[in-house]
Nucleic acid binder design. Sequence first.
DNA 1: CAGCATCCTAGCAGATACTG
DNA 2: CAGTATCTGCTAGGATGCTG
Lengths: 127, 127
Amino acid sequence: MRKESSTNAFNEKQINDSCGMAYSLSVLGGRWKPAILCRLMHQTMRYSDLKNSIDQISERMLVSQLRELEADLVVKRTVYPVVPPRVEYELTELGLSMRPMLKAMSDWGNMHRSKVNPEADVVVSEF
Amino acid sequence: MRKESSTNAFNEKQINDSCGMAYSLSVLGGRWKPAILCRLMHQTMRYSDLKNSIDQISERMLVSQLRELEADLVVKRTVYPVVPPRVEYELTELGLSMRPMLKAMSDWGNMHRSKVNPEADVVVSEF
DNA sequence: CAGCATCCTAGCAGATACTG
DNA sequence: CAGTATCTGCTAGGATGCTG
C-alpha cells in the first residue's frame, strides 16, 4: 500500500470507482508535477535544465517533487560520477504511459478555460 | 481570469504546455471531487444521496466541493421549492465532457497501482 | 552542479454545533 | 432535508542558508 496522504481520497472503505482517479491525482497532483512531467515528456533533462525551465520553482520543491515522482516509478534519476556532478531525469516506461492521460487533461483544461473565460488565449499543447 | 490559487501552477509567466493540466487539476483536484464526479457521472443525485454514498465526508466538505464544481460550471444545482427541501445535483454538458479525461485518469491509476503494488485488487471502473 | 536542513505560514480540511 | 457557522489542527509548500 502506498503512503496514505490525508489529501488523498483513496482509502480501503472507498475502494470504488474513484480510487483509480485518486491514485492518479496523488501521482501528478503536486504543485509543480504537471510542469515537470510536461517537460520530461519531451526529453531527458538534467537538474539545472529543469530548474531553469520552470520559472519560480525553488530547490526544495523541485527536489521533493522529483523524489516523489521517482518513488511512484514514473521518473528515473541517473547520477553520473563526474565533477561537477551531472544528474539526469527521464520518464520511465510507466511515466511515458501517462501521455494519453496527460493529453486528455491538457485538452479538457484548455477547453474549459475557453468556456469559463472565452477571451483567454487558447494555447494548445502538442504531446 | 479565474481566481488564482497559490496551489495552482497556472500563471501568466508559465502559460505553456502545463497550463491546461493545471486548470484541469484545479477543477477536479479537490479532496472529494473525484468521488463526487464519479457518482454524478452515472446519475443525478440529491444532496442526501451524495452524502450517504460518500462515506466519511462531512457536510462542510460536501457543500464546499459542490459549490466549487458549480462555480467551474461542471455541476448544476437545482432547488425544488417543496417541504422538506429537495436539491438535486447533476453534471452540465461541460461536466459530462470530462468523461474521457476521467476515464483516462481512472485507467492509468488502476494500472499504476498494479505496477507499484501488484498484489492490490484490480478494480476496473466503467465510465 | 545538485542538492539538504531549518524555519515558517497560508489555507485546506476535520470536528462540532446550530438553522430555515 | 439541506445546509451554515465557528474553531482548530495539520501539512503542503515557500524562503533562506549551507555543502559534497
